[in-house]
Design a protein around this nucleic acid. Sequence first.
RNA 1: GGCCUCGUCGUCUAGUGGUUAGGACGUCUGGUUCUCAUCCAGAAAAUCGCGGGUUCGACUCCCGCCGAGGUCACCA
Length: 479
Amino acid sequence: MEVVTRFAPSPTGYIHIGNVRSAIYPYLLARQTNGKMILRIEDTDRERFVEGATELIEDTLNWLGLEWDEGPIIGGPHAPYFQSERKEIYHAWARKLIAAGRAYADPTPPEVIDSYRRECNSKKVPFLYRNFRPENTPEWEPGLPLRFKAEPKNYDWVDEVMGKMHTGPEVLDDIILIKKDGYPTYNFAHIVDDAEMGVTHVMRGVEYLSSTPNYLALYEALGLKRPKLVSLPHILAPQGNKKLGKRDGAKSVTEYRADGILPETMLNYLACLGWNDGTEQEIYTKQELIEKFSLQRIQNSGARYDETKLLWLNGQWIRKIFVEQGAKALYDRTIGFWPEAANSYPEDYKVAVLSIIYDRLKTLSDLHTMTSYFFEDPRIDLNMLVDNKFLKKFSESELENLLKLSISKLTNLEAWDKETLQDCLNGLLVETNTKPAELFSLIRIALSFAPFSPALNLTLDVLGKETSLARLNAVARAI
RNA sequence: GGCCUCGUCGUCUAGUGGUUAGGACGUCUGGUUCUCAUCCAGAAAAUCGCGGGUUCGACUCCCGCCGAGGUCACCA
């Protein structure tokens, strides 16, 4: 049977890293089995609805490369995919329940229900509405909430991650199916939708584990086959033991795009937070994840979110793309991350710069600070020369002489490429009887006045003869 | 409080009766003709939450406890 999974977020804001995994795993499973993934927007809470949130969600999925088969804009055989547009469907199913005597309209005012709840809380007993079930219930009509009539009993089921589950009758209750505003609750809507849409695997956070018996009761009352249930462990905040949420500063997934994290990194990192294939592999392409993913190997304990490892992984991916797909492919990912001054330079030049600094990048936004001297002349700061730990031992006139000799040798070069330049630099080392740390530091700093730069011959090569010599001369004059 | 879930290096994890408890991030130390990285090599780092059993033998099986989390909404 075809596997059908879904990602069913509510449009209450952006998707953060704490909950995007419940999009990734369904995606991987669907692709692995040549099944389908559905995007469904659970917008039945009209108070919390945020304008534009659906677009944000689609944007996130697109950026991560998680394409879906049915959903709001692209449509599909089970449209509409906004729950708010499916009211009649829920009502039709609700009427079946009423007809079967398994649902009732509840006239009890909220204040009264609150008092029941408070009573239970003060007695330290769980609040079960079915213990307060009204004797006579009216016809269901708009303005009245509709409740499920629970039949308490034991339930046994298998959670694909947590394993064999068993609960007693005490967890079943008369949950609200339809709110007084006519919209269904999540509890009811998702069951109806999953059934109508043919969803075979329901994947969601562990927080739903406690209410699963109520869902099981609903499947039963509705005469529906229960789908496979998959509980996903939480992603924990860096501090404490709570699940990662917006109040812990959980950034939106796409915010990481602005920070220069690659989507490959994000997908790789998040997929492997709480899942692994049992090997020692750390870097996975999307394709590899699709092939190797398995429900059985999802971790059943929470996993802490660790940004340091994300950064490491991003560095790995930057290098992987450069090595496997080439400098141009990596360059295409860097648009928007270059310093202002780079705008007036041709693409070839920027690709050349990228080629010699890419392996120092942790994020693409590092480009901004790491490459400025390739695009504008640095401010000359003689203290950087004089105070340098390798150059301290030289007097200013010695430095000037070293620099002048270097300038004349470089000026006389006929070719300007990394090999010729290295030969020239090596010759200067012999001639001046200095150590690489000394002479190279001098030239490197004079060229860049940056805390670090790529290998000297490469820096000179990319900067070009004219710019390099102009900068060295300027420094020689300034000493 | 009831019910449910979870518990291996700081972190992510491998491990299903017999292993020097393995890998990765991070940390530290070296090496790579200068810096910062990369890369390479190496080190430190888990009495497997605790206590009982079962067994020749337990991280692995059983029981109890403790700790952490979830849930008990007309939110999802």
